[in-house]
Design a binder for these strands. Structure first.
Length: 571
DNA sequence: GCCGTTTTCGGCCCGACTGTTTTCAGTCG
């Protein structure tokens, strides 16, 4: 039973309790814990197996009641309480809950009154206009549910940050061009740089209705869902929903804070506000009837007695507690990055020649970089034979002879074979400056076997780092199970680094394990894993991920100046 | 159901929008 599964069950319980009309604070207790666990970096089952229920009780938001339930889940894989809640509920309820616009009450009413379980049955009812016979249902509701079903069919999955971000940027740039001198910025999970995003929220510091018109008539808009005086919502040709909101300049900071979330983070801020005798909402921070902050975000945190919390950290984990103690670190920034240490060239499955890569890297202001193509066993990616590699080494040496302000490291992304050995012999590896070991094959191993395999690779004295450690592809391939703690300990013992792979499909290490690695003092580096020049942009997502994991500049090796980096390598 | 520089009991965030409502319930963020 993984945390992920437990989180799903907690959400399920909350929904079922809502259907039953339970106390809303009880419901919130489950939601609060679910949100907290989503950025909690230890598996509950490990805590439980080491320290039992007492261990669970030390986790925020877990009290006696929930500890008992989690213990049962871990031990038996089942929960009698959940079964009890489900008893007598029509199956359709859980299905209909997935439809936007349908909440617990509506889902129950429909499933119960019509005794149906599937979306297609529901569609049929809607088309026959049978729903409006129910009390509280009218024509508009029918339309709304039909629209919701369409949305559900179009894309139920949250979309990759790397897919959605460029769309948001394009929209914002175009609006800015048409409406100069106005602040326009993205909020929501996009601003928090969460790895997946549900929809795009854009905030505008003006009440000019023309902006809404421009927004709704953008080329990429396919349908306009809603269009009012201060708010509009559209669907793009890529099936992404974008919500635009106009707010008063004087409330812009408060609105930005509010719309950035996460929701639970905001709830905690408001609790703090009310304890201080204030009131916080999207218009500002108020003392009695007077606004004491609202124009910018910093002010709001300040007046609440908190250090400013960067958006990437606002996930209701422990960031507010840290901000109270002034312990939010200065996070790594774009401008700190001096190198990209994971790049593929046309020698393997990349599309660009090394010379072209170098000139692009220089254009981007990098001081050094590593070419890290695939190794010989990875045939699908045109892994380099020893001869290819020697040829590449020679080419890089020649480039370095000519370059003055830029240095190219001879690297490799060498396969970690099934037994943990590396895909080239040591006498080849030792010719290289930077060796990343990655797992690309034989994913189906037990947790212990995979952990042993990676640790064996870490023992090799010519290896410098581990690449995309969990092997996951977001929304596509689950990570293989590994014992992070053992791997981190080994990385420290052998003085090796671990990659934050910046490819938006990977973002691996994930934010929560970055935090854990840094607590132990593991060194990290951000690599784009670029296979063409435009993918060098991925650095941006890697930095976002690092920031979400509380990474400081000094935690990230590729913020080092070349000399310092080379010194680290030698060690 | 959780939690405590107000409390072991009595609190627990705030508002917008929508639809079908004569005063509010449901959903969303």
């Amino acid at each position: 039973m993984t945390n992920k599964q437990i989180i799903e069950i907690l959400y399920q319980i909350a929904e079922l309790l809502e259907i039953k009309g339970e106390n809303k604070f009880k419901i919130r207790a489950y939601l609060k814990l679910a949100q907290f666990l989503s950025s909690f970096n230890k598996e509950l089952k490990d805590i439980y197996s080491e320290r039992g229920k007492a261990g669970l009780r030390e986790i925020p938001n877990i009290g006696e009641g929930i500890a008992k339930k989690i213990a049962e889940l871990i031990e038996t894989g089942k929960l009698t309480y959940l079964d009890e809640l489900k008893k007598g509920l029509p199956k359709g309820v859980e299905v209909f809950l997935n439809i936007p616009g349908i909440g617990p009450k509506t889902a129950y009413k429909i499933a119960d009154k019509f005794n149906i379980n599937t979306i297609s049955e529901l569609e049929k009812l809607l088309k026959e206009h049978k729903l409006k016979d129910l009390k509280g249902f009218g024509e508009k509701t029918e339309e709304k549910i039909l629209k919701g079903i369409q949305l559900f069919k179009n894309g139920q999955e949250r979309k990759l940050l790397g897919f959605v971000y460029p769309i948001a940027k394009k929209v914002i740039d175009e609006l800015k061009q048409k409406h100069k001198g106005i602040e326009i910025t993205a909020a929501g999970s996009l601003r928090r740089m969460k790895e997946t995003v549900g929809d795009i929220d854009i905030l505008v510091s003006s009440f000019d209705k023309k902006i809404i018109d421009s927004f709704c008539s953008l080329d990429i808009v396919s349908t306009v869902n809603a269009k009012g005086d201060t708010k509009a919502s559209v669907y793009t040709i890529h099936n992404v929903q974008i919500d635009l909101r106009l707010v008063d300049e004087k409330s812009f900071g408060a609105a930005l804070q509010y719309f950035t979330g996460c929701k639970e983070h905001n709830v905690i801020l408001r609790e703090i506000a009310s304890k201080k005798g204030y009131k916080l909402n999207e218009y500002g921070l108020f003392k009695g009837g007077t606004k004491i902050a609202g124009e910018n975000e910093k002010e709001i945190y300040e007046k609440l007695g908190l250090q400013f919390i960067p958006p990437e950290l606002r996930e209701a984990s422990d960031e507010i507690e840290l901000a109270m103690k002034n312990k939010i670190p200065k996070l790594v920034e774009d401008k700190d990055i001096k190198a990209d240490l994971h790049i593929h060239s046309s020698y393997s499955d990349g599309s660009d020649k090394i010379l072209d890569i170098v000139s692009e890297l220089k254009r981007r202001g990098y001081k050094y970089a590593a070419i890290t193509d695939h190794s010989k066993s990875l045939k699908v990616a045109k892994g380099l034979t020893v001869n290819d590699l020697l040829k590449q080494i020679k080419e890089i040496d020649e480039i370095n002879e000519k370059e003055k302000d830029f240095y190219l490291l001879k690297g490799i992304e060498v396969d970690i074979l099934e037994d943990g050995s590396l895909d080239y012999p040591d006498e080849i590896l030792k010719k290289l400056d930077f060796v990343i070991g990655s797992v690309h094959t034989n994913f189906k191993m037990s947790k212990k076997e995979m952990t042993d395999r990676i640790i064996k690779a870490l023992e090799n004295k010519y290896l410098h780092a581990i690449g995309h450690i969990s092997g996951r592809l977001i929304n596509f391939r689950e990570p293989y199970e590994i014992d992070y703690e053992r791997i981190f300990n080994a990385a420290i013992y052998y003085n090796k680094a671990i990659e934050i792979n910046a490819n938006p499909e990977r973002l691996d290490l994930t934010d929560i394990y970055i935090k854990e690695a840094l607590k132990k003092g593991v060194k990290l580096f951000i690599g784009t894993d670029a296979h063409n020049l435009s993918q060098l942009d991925y650095m941006f997502y890697g930095i976002g991920c690092a920031r979400r994991g509380f990474a400081k500049k000094e935690d990230i090796l590729n913020t080092y100046y070349l000399e310092k980096f080379l010194k680290w390598i030698k060690k």
